[in-house]
Write a protein that binds this DNA or RNA. Structure first.
Lengths: 337, 337
DNA sequence: CGATATCAAGATATCGATATCATTGATGCA
DNA sequence: TGCATCAATGATATCGATATCTTGATATCG
């Protein structure tokens, strides 16, 4: 006595193949393939018949087989690489906002998004992709180099660094953001501005440079206040430390909206008026900042658009075109602070 | 004169195969395959030699070929399906928080995450996966049915509905969340509570039911205030409408922290004291609520853990085990409101 | 009418890996 | 010595799709 049919532990659904379909339709595999891919090489009547059969039996294309034959996977790996120092959850909302645009653009181009963090032991999944989008939060040059040597099309989000052999960089124009903030402060007559942020982070460093340079044009030298965290608490604490040190200041440029809101809260506690005594500009234009009281002035980055741009650039690279790094404009949104 | 080598537009890197490696090592393909997969069937010395060669030449496994042969992709499709009504960006942070746990768990199990929205014309990419995780925001029963008939292992995030043939449901215990809020209000002597949220959304409906039922045990009937949006503005507006209608109330259970914060802001504007006149409980325990003034009481859902659970359940299904739907406990976090 | 396009479909090879069965030489044991 | 056992490796078939080259039938043209 023999087992005629083994128990199938994994996927009991018996998928039928093109060969099966071919037999059912009384044609060859290749004709089925052509019919399903709308090739003009098959008779219209045949095509209809095959397609109807495929629908009827719930035929599913075996993507692996097709990928193998075509030598491409129609997949782009999106690697979310955060600064390894912060052992916290890898999922600050920031890089995720880009994901919207990325996913939208890739999907509509017929590509899939393979989401990865670096922690994965193997790079096998990444190598299966046709290209790479690397999202990181500063200080990840080692990651860039690591993936760069895979020799795959790659686009990195961030501050414009050199841009290696295979990869290019897309990011928002942080320097311009810093300049805008400086211009605003100058135009409303502030003379003692403070910068709150973390210059070790390349993107923030750009903001700082823009800020400092523009202010220098007007003979102003801002105070740099380092903060590693971009939370509300960190902002509160930052302003308190300024107050403790009896520092005189009349403007704050913070590297995130949360930081800015924290700062404002601390200022109010200290009896300072915003924006009369101290003017505050945040960064990111989060929805929260807009409905904060008072509504927060901020530098806007368009994440959605950034994601779309990232996607377009990888796709272009995959299609063999030469593409260039690009910085996206930032906008100063002046509200009440 | 003939072209001996065509220009390769896409990927100029000539990947070498196991066959190449075999030739280099003077063994057969199979031996290479075995050596690279640490099979005990090859001599240790041979294994080392092959592996060294692979490293030296930067050999990359062709994942498509392996997937084809092994008839599995080691990939789980994560489908982010939002309520189609809201034409807004599909990327509220909510489902994305789950992504952290999902990605972490799947990656460490050697699986990849294929990220998708439904908008993609084809389901081909999804069908290439070994399983599906469906993240949605209420009112997506049609989506569930759609993917259910693919006959693949599937886990859905949300309120426990029937749970179809192939899929099970994981979510947080919204009903319990509602009960906790009710208990709290009762225990501090509130008699006129209001519920703000959207009962069309299954998860919110559960919260409402729990809330209503528990209050009923104490002879209290809450007021239901429908709000479709979960923003700060919506919360503000909700309280104003209550005030306009001269409704008497002493407690608010809001379906999101933002809603709650908006409500508090409106209450303060109206000269009401929180929590003396009106007690407020939010939902989600966002970091923002914790640092709000006054710090917000809220019902906490553990997203990270939810993601992990989702991932574990699909994997179990993929491995042929029978798994069951599960609701995760919620915690009432009592702060100042 | 014969030669040549044109159209529809099929035969075969191939993508790169792994499962299965077969082979080889060395060793153990009676 | 003879035969079973075992360790290491190889030959071959196979996963399911598509590219390339053919084939056969029909249409077109000078």
């Amino acid at each position: 006595m023999t087992h005629t049919k083994k128990k199938q532990p994994v996927a009991p659904r018996a998928n039928l193949t093109m060969a099966d379909l071919a037999e059912l339709a009384g044609v060859s595999k290749i004709t089925v393939s052509r019919a399903l891919s709308e090739s003009p090489l098959v008779n219209a009547e045949t095509r209809e018949r095959v397609q109807a059969l495929a629908r009827k039996h719930g035929y599913k294309l075996n993507v692996s087989a097709r990928n193998l034959r075509l030598r491409r996977s129609h997949t782009v790996a999106v690697i979310v690489e955060m600064k390894p120092s912060s052992g916290r959850t890898m999922w600050d909302p920031y890089p995720l906002s880009l994901l919207g645009g990325i996913s939208q653009e890739l999907t509509s181009a017929g590509y899939s998004v393979l989401l990865t963090t670096r922690q994965g032991a193997t790079d096998a999944p990444v190598q299966a992709a046709d290209g790479i989008i690397l999202l990181g939060q500063g200080a990840h040059q080692d990651a860039v180099r690591f993936y760069d040597r895979l020799g795959m099309p790659m686009v990195v989000w961030g501050a414009a660094e050199q841009g290696g052999d295979n990869h290019i960089v897309v990011g928002s124009d942080n320097r311009q953001g810093g300049i805008s903030a400086a211009e605003r402060f100058v135009s409303i007559g502030r003379r003692h501005p403070v910068f709150i942020g973390n210059p070790d982070h390349p993107e923030m460093a750009q903001r700082l440079f823009g800020f400092v340079d523009e202010l220098a044009n007007h003979g102003i030298k801002p105070l740099l206040l380092r903060r590693a965290e971009f939370t509300l608490e960190s902002g509160i604490e930052a302003v308190r430390s300024l107050s403790d040190r009896k520092v005189r200041f009349d403007a704050i440029f913070a590297c995130s909206d949360l930081l800015a809101m924290g700062a404002i809260r601390a200022l109010v506690e200290l009896g300072q008026s915003v924006p009369n005594d101290v003017s505050v500009i945040g960064y990111d234009d989060t929805p929260l900042g807009a409905s904060f009281l008072p509504p927060l002035s901020t530098v806007r980055q368009n994440w959605q658009e950034g994601g779309v741009l990232l996607a377009r650039k990888v796709l272009a690279q995959i299609h063999g075109q030469t593409v260039q790094s690009q910085m996206m404009a930032t906008t100063l949104v002046v509200r009440a602070t």
